[in-house]
Design a protein around this nucleic acid. Sequence first.
DNA 1: ATGAAAGCGCTAACAT
DNA 2: ATGTTAGCGCTTTCAT
Lengths: 341, 341
Amino acid sequence: MTVTIREIAKQAGVSRGTVDRVLNDRPGVKPHVRARILEIVNELNYVPNLAAKALAYQKKPVVFGIVMPPEDIEFFESIRSGINSAADELKDLGIRLDYRYVDNRGPEEGAAAIRELVEAGVSGIMFSVMDDELIRASIDYAAERNVPVVTFNSDVEHSKRICFVGQDLHKSGLVAAGLMNRVLHERAKVVIVTGNLKFHAHRSRVEGFRKGLADYGSRFEVLDVIEGYDRYAETFEQLDRLLGEHADLGGIYMATGDIAACVDAIKKHRREGQLRVVCNDLMPPAEQGLRERIIDFTIVQNPERQGYVSLRMLYDHVFAGKQPESEHHFTETHIYIPESL
Amino acid sequence: MTVTIREIAKQAGVSRGTVDRVLNDRPGVKPHVRARILEIVNELNYVPNLAAKALAYQKKPVVFGIVMPPEDIEFFESIRSGINSAADELKDLGIRLDYRYVDNRGPEEGAAAIRELVEAGVSGIMFSVMDDELIRASIDYAAERNVPVVTFNSDVEHSKRICFVGQDLHKSGLVAAGLMNRVLHERAKVVIVTGNLKFHAHRSRVEGFRKGLADYGSRFEVLDVIEGYDRYAETFEQLDRLLGEHADLGGIYMATGDIAACVDAIKKHRREGQLRVVCNDLMPPAEQGLRERIIDFTIVQNPERQGYVSLRMLYDHVFAGKQPESEHHFTETHIYIPESL
DNA sequence: ATGAAAGCGCTAACAT
DNA sequence: ATGTTAGCGCTTTCAT
């Protein structure tokens, strides 16, 4: 027999309305009555029926806000497709989405979007813009008003978000090192390309990679760590120089940065196939590089999964009262080769 | 405004009961009335509300039957965990599961289980035992009684199942070849280990692998294809012989078979690290082999995902009337290295 | 502070 | 052949 509100009401000798008030933390119930009901709830191991909840919410569906960079950014399209497939599963379960696309070059828009959504009465927020003091304050503002926030893809550390859903950056660096180990031999020289070492996220991959190499003794030499600031020109220029200086360079780890620049630099020096290249993500330049056999491996962070999991997590939190198992939910780290495509 | 049965009934000038009869293909409606209602349904683009459906089904939950090998088989535990996580999401949506564990050495039990489930009135069946004439007949028997069957992990070809959910075996062979290409150099000799070439599934991986090697020109030589019949002794013995005969063997592709036997044979000949080894799945022996750096890569078929997708597909079919997009649903092919663990 | 009752969209049993 | 109605479990509004 499944336990219902009706059953609890009967046992407590009150009406279903009162039980509902208690279960949803609404005022208007005498403390001792509330206590008694909670007792019975625990004893009977009551679990709310989500279908019934959903039906009752039909009139006034629960809204989840989503704050992310503009639609035209390739990488986020994959995330959105994951979000939408979760939304699809949940569409009859009484939820609606409110997307807010904000400029990701500064924190202002993102911070404002969170506040607007809270004012508008959303029941939860998914957020992915940047890590900033202003943003952190907005997240905490939401949290204080009981609006749970899940950050995805890039975290806002030390904020009151209930969870971060994204890649394990350190591990992706480790895996990259493992791949280098497999394809390079005795005493190889490698170079690391990153965006900006001031960013924690960019540093993590580099650190993971170094740690991974170290596990294989001292046979690897990291010639240089290039900061390309995610720009083509800077990245190309520096790699161009390095390739010129080191005829014996064995591998390139594109931790973060413009992959096209890397591919072009290798082509310019006619070193296709002589260098082992490991990069991240499966954007068109990486895919193209794989197909041309210039890139050996690319490590992906499952953007669809990130979107899917984040929304599902909010739903479970709001409707079933589930806490995330940990404050970090890492999506699996997967390796792609040309044949995987 | 969402379209409801009530709305359709009003427009058609009939009662909700009649609309319900039409929508669920129940008898007792005059053909022209039925046609008229269907017309309106299409015009208004009616989509049933699953939460409401689920609630209404509470009294008499829909049951899905699951036929698979015994609980103690490691590989199927992962699949089951995927099934259960889907069931968890669907638990309030009016479904129950009926597991039938059958001996997978012969077709009889599996075939009988299907029939029993059909007689018991289940609304759908997930099946994973073996490909056999007896089984095929049972699946068709179910299909004829409008009980949809999804085969998972291993298919029953040419049967009336609505879909097969599992790995793309050919692709996993291709990927294995791609990995060999990356880690072996000029003119390498490799050996393929499979279970039984009479089985279509076992053949597929081997064919994919050969096709993949061929893509890299003629630099690979396949010394032998060993049939180990999934047994330790046979596999060990043959690999032992081969390793003795060919000091220059470059790689082993364990397409199907006992991985512990492979690891042990390599250890006996003290060829750890000198041979590149690619295998499948992430059972304990493979994991152990990876950690010991005897196995270089293992290619996985996402057993959890197979379970999850299969159940979800049945649900969508039965409750939302969705047809599978294709009669094969391949789970992604992923590559693992020690660092992935 | 608490109870009673209507309604969310659908199904199924019972009436007509 | 078709209409009516009573739930399914929960929320919410209106009485008391």
